[in-house]
């Protein structure tokens, strides 16, 4: 097995076993205890935990610090990095710093637009986009060169990831864009939360046909519904989120106090269906502010205990 970074996530994926990643968002303040508490639920059920980078353009404590906290807890982080807030100087600097701290998985994103966040008055950067960030880190890792051509002394060994959203438009271009991310350096991708299973199956078919799933590991994104309200909100207000009515009807069909339980059942079924799809290499479970339910969901889906790697 040839490894680029040698992270647990990379080893599990390369061994052919289904991987599990979860997500843990840092808080809107310096409360490390709260973050540790949320992360503690994920310790034994995820191979690696994604740390979001000011997700939805809301200020939170930084991804780099949060990754370090996870490592101290014995949890392997996937550091998310968005190009919205930093130029190429800061981005490359943070990649080097992250590698120096021992972070081995990096997810390169453009990030949500700042107009959606808590500081819509902010100046955005967008010096690079996600594809260019992938290319930049890959070049630092493989060629020992920065974007400027400056030599990197001590190459950052990162297992590189990207996001894909099969539910945005134009649909037929989504696989082309994924291919572009792979060309730029993506070794794994994590998808946007999947609800429209049919469309996702079509997307995977196209990705398989193009040979993309042989070049890159696809971790299918799952977010359990806590309530029918959440499902409706996602359907109506989250751009590019396709929530079929069948799920909404199903949640409506049970008493309010049972909706969360039903949401979990749906998530478990989804995970099982996704793992059956050709080319799906694992699950990316985003139980947003519901981390404590991750073990239950993953256990019911037959994904626990997690494999041990050296």
């Amino acid at each position: 097995m040839t490894l680029t970074a040698g992270s647990k996530l990379e080893k599990i994926l390369k061994s052919g076993q289904k991987a599990v990643t979860c997500e843990c968002g840092p808080p809107r303040g310096a409360d490390a205890e709260h973050f540790r508490h949320k992360a503690s639920f994920l310790k034994d059920c995820a191979d690696a935990v994604n740390v979001t980078d000011n997700q939805t353009a809301v200020v939170r404590f930084c991804s780099l610090a949060a990754c370090r906290i996870l490592m101290d807890m014995g949890i392997e982080p996937v550091m998310q990095m968005v190009t919205r807030d930093m130029n190429r100087i800061a981005l490359q600097s943070n990649v080097l710093g992250a590698a120096a701290l021992g972070i081995k998985n990096l997810l390169c994103l453009t990030g949500d637009h700042n107009s959606f966040g808590d500081h819509p008055q902010a100046k955005n950067v967008h010096d690079l986009d996600s594809v260019q960030l992938l290319a930049a880190v890959k070049a630092m890792r493989d060629d020992g060169k920065m974007i400027s051509g400056t030599e990197v002394v001590g190459r950052p060994q990162m297992f590189l990831g990207a996001a894909v959203n099969p539910f945005a438009d134009p649909f037929e271009f989504r696989v082309v864009r994924m291919a572009k991310k792979i060309k730029a350096g993506a070794q794994f991708v994590q998808t946007q939360c999947i609800y429209d299973m049919e469309r996702f199956a079509k997307f995977m078919q196209m990705a398989n046909d193009m040979g993309l799933t042989e070049q890159c590991y696809v971790l299918a994104g799952v977010t359990p519904f806590k309530s029918v309200g959440m499902a409706n909100y996602m359907k109506k207000f989250v751009p590019g989120m396709l929530v079929p009515d069948s799920y909404i009807q199903r949640l409506k069909g049970v008493p309010k106090e049972k909706q969360a339980e039903e949401g979990i059942k749906i998530a478990v079924e989804q995970i099982q269906q996704l793992l059956e799809m050709k080319g799906v290499a694992g699950i990316h479970l985003m139980a947003i502010e519901w981390e404590e339910k991750a073990p239950e969901i993953l256990k019911a889906a037959g994904l626990l205990p997690r494999p041990q790697v050296d």
Partner: peptide, 15 residues
């Protein structure tokens, strides 16, 4: 909106 050189991003919906 994000000055992407490699778009469209995941926020493109119905054009």
């Amino acid at each position: 909106a994000k000055s992407l050189m490699n778009g469209p991003c995941g926020g493109s919906s119905g054009g």
